[in-house]
Every structure is written in C-alpha cells, then in structure tokens.
Amino acid sequence: MKKKLYEIVYEDKDLIIVNKSAGLLVTADRWDSEAPRLDKILEEALLKKEPEAKIYPVHRLDKETSGLIIYALNAEAHKILNDDFQNRRIEKIYHAVSAGCPREENFKSEARLKIDGDKMHRTLIDEKKGKDSLTEFSLLKKLGRFSLLEARPITGRTHQIRAHLKHLGLPILCDSLYGNGEPVYISALKKNWRGDKYEERPIISRLALHAHSLKFFHPISREKIEIKADYPKDMASLINQLSKL
C-alpha cells in the first residue's frame, strides 16, 4: 500500500492546515530542486478545483518531522499569519522522544543559536554570535531510559528544538544531525527478544519529532482555532514499545 503523504485537517477560503508525513519537504530545497514538495503538491490539487489557486507558506517543518503545518491561500491571510508568527501569537506544540530523562518535569533552554553554523549546516550553540532563542519543555512520560517530551518553541530558529535538546543532553531519537541517527529496533530494547535479526525492521528510522498541535486565531475571522494531529504509525509504535520497558 502506498504511503499517504499528507492529510488535510482544516480548510477554508483563507488557509489550509495539513498533517504531513515524515520525509516530505514543505517548500523548496536548495540541495534537490526536483524533490517532492508539499506546497507544490497542494497547489496542484487546488488548481484542479480553482484555476487561480495559490499556496503561501507561512512557517516550516523539517523534512523528517511529521505533523501540522499551515499554508495561507491568499495574500491578506498570508500577511496576517506572518505577522502573528513574528509576534508569537501562534502556539506550536511538538512531541519528541528523546534519549535520557530530564531531572525536572518542566524546564527550558535559552541557549543562543547560530544557524547554519558548520559544514553540516547544523544550528550551533553560540552565546556570543548566536540569536536569542527560547524553548520550553515538559516531561509527558518516562519511557525507561527514554522520555516523551512536549516542546513549545517560543522563538522560531531553524532546528531550534533539536539543537536545544542536544545541548541539554536529551537528543531526539534517530536524529542524524544532532544525535547518533541510529534506527530503533526492538532487539536493542528487549534482552530476551527472540526474533530473526536479519528480518527485523526498525520501529522507527526517522527523526522522532511530531508537530502535534496548533492554537491561533483565524487571520480573517479571528475565530480561535485549535488543531491536533495524532502520532503517525511509527511514532505511536515507538512510544507503545518503550512504554513496556
């Protein structure tokens, strides 16, 4: 069965909210201009219904992050949503599975971040030249030697959650840039696992980060909107398996 790339969870004449799968770009990529892109896929679908349809990006998600993303459908909504993001009036909540456990249930990182700071284009901690950054975290559940965390980025730096969690000694599982990038296998978690290691498939092999919910006011009507996206199959399975440890 072909993997579903996205699901529309909200749509009106001004904006569209999509729950995207991991592995799909949300906008142009400087390294691969031919790679499938959510904005173009959506625009092509909308053009079949409305000849003048256009997609306006207002924020981003990393390719390997699953979950919710908003696109505006006209210039007025685009301008207002951009302003709301700039002025931190849109609440974005992410869930991540990390290696290690925090010492407190609620904590934060204010480490200053330098974007595109090395040859691997990572975001680095740089207290002198970095930009002010703030992420608030909560421990949702201990999972053995791992943790299910909620992350609330107050600022919007590239790779902010990933860089801050690495800095705190809590790298996100399967993060190839800020962690060890290794897939998670049941055989590595359970000492008495009796399966065939040559046939075993990983529980998850991509960044264990999910854009879980959005809270904001509609750019035109100013009606309050709250949207949540369930975990995709791989992340739900990961949390389920780790809960049994």
Score class of each variant (00 low, 15 high):
Ala111Thr: 09
Gln86Asp: 10
Arg37Ala: 11
Val26Gln: 04
Ala75Met: 14
Leu24Val: 08
Lys54Asp: 02
Leu46Tyr: 10
His121Gln: 13
Arg30Gly: 09
Thr27Cys: 08
Ala99His: 11
Leu42Lys: 07
Lys79Ala: 14
Asn106Phe: 13
Lys20Cys: 02
Arg60His: 08
His59Met: 01
Lys63Gln: 13
Gln86Tyr: 02
Ala111Trp: 05
Asp83Leu: 06
Arg112Tyr: 12
Glu34Tyr: 14
Tyr56Cys: 05
Leu38Asn: 06
Asp62Thr: 03
Pro57Tyr: 10
His59Pro: 01
Ile115Ser: 09
Lys79Glu: 10
Leu81His: 06
Ile69Asp: 01
Ile93Trp: 03
His78Asn: 12
His95Ala: 02
Ile69Thr: 01
Asp29Ser: 14
Leu25Phe: 12
Glu110Lys: 13
Asp62Ile: 02
Leu47Gly: 02
Leu81Ile: 09
Glu104Phe: 13
Lys79Tyr: 07
Ala28Gly: 08
Pro36Glu: 12
Glu52Trp: 12
Asn106Ser: 15
Lys79Asp: 08
Val97Leu: 06
Lys119Asn: 14
Asp29Ala: 10
Ile70Leu: 02
Gln86Pro: 00
Leu24Ser: 07
Gly100Arg: 07
Lys108His: 15
Ala35Leu: 09
His78Arg: 11
Tyr56Met: 04
Lys20Thr: 01
Ile90Gly: 00
Ile41Lys: 07
His59Asn: 02
Arg103Ala: 15
Tyr56Asn: 06
Gly23Trp: 05
Lys79Gln: 13
Lys40Thr: 15
Glu50Asp: 15
Cys101Val: 15
Ile115Gly: 01
Arg88His: 10
Glu76His: 13
Val58Asn: 03
Ile17Asn: 03
Gly67Ser: 07
His95Pro: 01
Ser33Met: 14
Ile93Asp: 03
Ile80Gly: 00
Thr27Tyr: 12
Arg89Ile: 00
Phe107Asn: 08
Leu61Phe: 03
Glu110Met: 13
Leu25Asp: 13
Ala22Thr: 08
Ser98Tyr: 03
Lys49Arg: 15
Ser109Val: 04
Ala53Gln: 12
Glu76Tyr: 15
Val26Asn: 04
Leu38Glu: 08
Arg88Tyr: 01
His59Gly: 00
Ile41Arg: 06
Arg60Tyr: 03
Lys54Tyr: 07
Gly23Asn: 07
Asn19Ile: 04
Lys48Ser: 09
Ile69Trp: 02
Leu46Trp: 03
Val18Ser: 00
Ser109Glu: 04
